[in-house]
Amino acid sequence: MQQLTLALAKGRTAKDSLRILEKANIRFPTFHPASRKLIFEDESCTIKMLYVKAVDVPTYVETGAADIGIVGRDNILESTADLYEMLDLQIGRCDFVVASTSTKPLNDYRSITVASKYPKVAANYFNDKHIPVETITLNGSVELAPMIHMADMIVDIVETGTTIRENGLTILETIEPISTRVIVNKASFATKTPLIQDFITNVESVLAKEGM
């Protein structure tokens, strides 16, 4: 029997994602967020779940190690992986923004140094605006960079903007909205079409019922 492998992003959206899957009758009885196990099987043994870091989900799916992934669009954009992005779960909503300690508009800069966990997204955004950009990759506490003049501004995801404001930063521009998506490997879609289509329509109908 063919099995589907699903890569689920750890972190802030994992609980909500699992709730949606549960409504679609996909349950992982042995799963517990604190468990040290990395692989879980669902009740019917048709889906194997890999519980992995969000930033790695697109990699698992692009290489075909997982057929399907559930992960934020921020990580999908940063990975530039060649995938199908088939569903928007409408959870984990936030925005990709440009923020700085200064309120000077972007167009007044001759060149910009930007710190971000998402260097590719940042570079693409400023390149499209034809502003020369230098990126600094950080893995956390990005807000610090403009405060200590390591960078002019940051590109990051914000939910409410509280952290940004508390650190004296202002949102200059919103790049685009982010939410949790279902991604699919293109080869898996071709070789396991019925399984994947069933999974998608199943989850889709849950979303429809919830009015999303």
Binding site: E62, T63, G64, A65, N185, K186, A187, S188, T191
Partner: peptide, 9 residues
């Protein structure tokens, strides 16, 4: 063309 177990065409 795709074959089983290869993640790209």
């Amino acid at each position: 063309g795709f074959i089983h177990n290869v993640g790209k065409p």
